[in-house]
Design a protein around this nucleic acid. Structure first.
Lengths: 239, 239
DNA sequence: AAAACACAAATTGTCGACAATAATACTTAA
DNA sequence: TTAAGTATTATTGTCGACAATTTGTGTTTT
């Protein structure tokens, strides 16, 4: 499973490798959301010095997976519903703009490449008949390609380098493989069409609606499931 | 001069203090844009160990003021025109959305507070007759208040905690005290009106136009000044 | 003379230990 | 018994030194 984003260059230093390991552990929930991080403990667990562990922690903080307080320590961010919704609002703004820029800046080859990718996904989807495959891999691939297509380093760094780790974390923790697969496919198709037409305004609008639809889908699911179990902090809303 | 953003809590550890010092030095151009950073040199200059300097460097990297390559070292980001335009595109997306959210989420007290602030600025502007004051302080204050008004931690962190240091850096390096002061004032006024009317859609559109106008203003200035001096990397376009 | 190789110097990454701060447990007083 | 204050423990911040890698220099070879 290719979980890494296209931004980060391969880990060369040991701090980088440990960073990726911890990142994976946090995203997958092996290190539980909201838990405190013990520097000596983790350092011993990964067989490294505390200095290089702290180096790794700094990278984790950069992609908003942990939070640090001076003289107190680090905690894994806890996955709240408000946090998830705020994240989607931010995505809507950033990816919407990225999509607009993609319509302006993508090369014809990149667009053709994306269209073939969509066709491949289409067939795969028909075969597997709406299984989670599309949601996991295909959706991420599509969004990554659009973001990279913006050719805007600032946007790319912010979305791929920072936000998407959080998004993957929420997806894992909340078990979000929604039944939007087929509808999402159509939306993706229309977005690519707008990009191919070089219609930046439409492309942005469609992308924003696409993400907003995801958000509202989540809000509805939350609204259904939450009243039963009376928890402010929700964990594992496996559908 | 209050240059600090409202996000960061006061520096308690020495790494924090050195971080703020270096940050200031980079923003003001004392450490030139694009220059390589010598860890031993800076550590000696600030009378601290290399470890705590590296801690400070990590924070600088978090707000995109320096870039690091493994086993090679750190460089101050260089201020290119493309970088500036990309930054404004990103701002347009993020602050536009923040403004929309502000229209939805700001309390009546916050809105009233912003309106009085605008009045104060109005008088100050009339007195000083369109001097750079408004541009520097007033503009930042206004934007900060709108962003905080979104009540969206993700947006606040991204914009105030990261992007705005870069924006201040570009403003210093390119000497951007444009003659848009009076027009910007009107735009601010209309934005606050939209927020007070709880019209999120209009508020976002006005904020996006406001920032886009700034960007185009810069583009024009660049287009005028660049053809004369044949430089790919422009420094100090003092108007 | 130019290119390739080897060597030397400097810089970055990693480590373990000490100092300073916060959290915990215990004792004492009301 | 509870509350406050103190002492102890544990954790974080900082330091200097060593190891690994890169960069620059000088030499050799074609």
């Amino acid at each position: 499973m290719k979980t890494n984003n296209p931004t980060q260059q391969e880990a060369v230093t040991t701090a980088d490798k440990v960073f990726e390991q911890i990142q994976h552990a946090i995203v997958e929930g092996e290190i539980p959301s909201g838990s405190k991080i013990s520097e000596p403990g983790l350092a011993k667990h990964y067989q490294i010095s505390r200095s290089t562990l702290r180096e790794a922690l700094n990278r984790l903080e950069k992609c908003h997976l942990i939070e640090r307080k001076a003289n107190v320590g680090s905690r894994v961010v806890d996955c709240s519903i408000e946090g998830l919704l705020e994240l989607y609002i931010t995505r809507e703004a950033l990816e919407g703009m990225a999509c607009r820029q993609a319509a302006l800046n993508m090369s014809d080859e990149e667009i053709a490449d994306m269209q073939t990718m969509l066709n491949v996904h289409s067939q795969t989807q028909e075969l597997k008949d709406g299984v989670a495959y599309y949601q996991e891999e295909g959706d991420l691939d599509f969004h990554y390609k659009v973001i990279l297509g913006s050719h805007n380093k600032q946007l790319i760094e912010l979305i791929c380098g920072q936000l998407y780790h959080l998004i993957r974390m929420y997806r894992c923790q909340f078990g979000m493989n929604s039944p939007r697969a087929s509808r999402a496919f159509d939306e993706h198709s229309r977005i690519i069409q707008a990009i191919a037409d070089r219609d930046g305004e439409l492309a942005e609008m469609l992308m924003r609606r696409h993400i907003a639809a995801s958000r509202k889908n989540i809000e509805n699911k939350i609204a259904q499931e939450l009243p039963q179990k009376e928890k402010t902090k929700v964990q594992l809303i496996k559908s």
